[in-house]
Design a protein around this nucleic acid. Structure first.
Length: 214
DNA sequence: ATCCCGAGGG
DNA sequence: CCCTCTGGAT
């Protein structure tokens, strides 16, 4: 495994991220807590661009659990057919909407345990909602953060939970609130899975990745 | 470990 | 063609 970069180096790396983008935010479109939850659930193994394309119209029709139930599973499928895994996602969103109404008073719950009782909501999705909506210092580890964390040495770990711990234990506290989105954006546009753009990487000086091609 | 599963890029 | 995209349930 790639060794963990020292604390002093992480300070320099995140100071660099903060200089480039002081207020990094999600590129997932949403209008309230419910639509954020749905958008994040739909984003599993899919691009933000693809999810936004589908939810732009969907959320004009169904931006509450009640309206989502009224739309129904088949109606929902018509909107998200262009997103991968759409059958599982449609079923989960309908069941999740019903559960929100029947068990949580129509509100999105604010604890990780409660969020994870919702169908289609695992630890990663729960942590994104906690971070973005409730401003908890929760570290959601997705495909980008897992790859970037291990490739660079910023937050290495064998599985998602280990990476989550590495962030909590090693990233300077003042940077933890924004760490998630900084790492996401870095992974999406610079440290890409297939052909990382090391030639324009702002943290190249500290990176432990060997293949520093252009 | 496997399945789900379309769009976009290379 | 193959790989990747803010995973989760079985």
């Amino acid at each position: 495994m790639t060794p963990q970069l020292p604390y002093a180096t992480l300070r320099q790396i995140f100071a660099r991220f903060a200089g480039i983008e002081p207020e990094p935010k999600s590129e997932l479109e949403h209008v309230n807590a419910f639509t954020l939850l749905v958008a994040v659930a739909l984003s599993a193994q899919a691009t933000d661009v693809g999810v936004n394309k589908a939810t732009r119209r969907l959320f004009q029709i169904a931006d509450t659990p009640e309206k989502m139930l009224a739309l129904g599973e088949d109606g929902l499928i018509e909107h998200i057919r262009t997103i991968g895994l759409y059958r599982n996602k449609a079923r989960n969103v309908i069941k999740l909407s019903r559960l929100l109404i029947e068990t949580f008073g129509g509100e999105v719950p604010s604890s990780r345990a409660a969020l994870m009782t919702l169908p289609g909501v695992g630890r990663k999705t729960a942590n994104v909602v906690l971070n973005m909506w409730f401003h908890h210092p929760a570290q959601a580890v997705d495909t980008h953060i897992f790859r970037v964390g291990n490739r660079t040495g910023i937050c290495p770990g064998r599985d998602e939970t280990a990476v989550e711990r590495a962030i909590e234990d090693n990233v300077p506290v003042e940077y933890q609130a924004h760490a998630h989105h900084w790492l996401i954006l870095h992974g999406r546009y610079i440290c890409t899975a297939r052909k990382p753009r090391c030639g324009i990487c702002p943290i190249r000086d500290w990176c432990l990745y060997e293949e520093k091609t252009a």
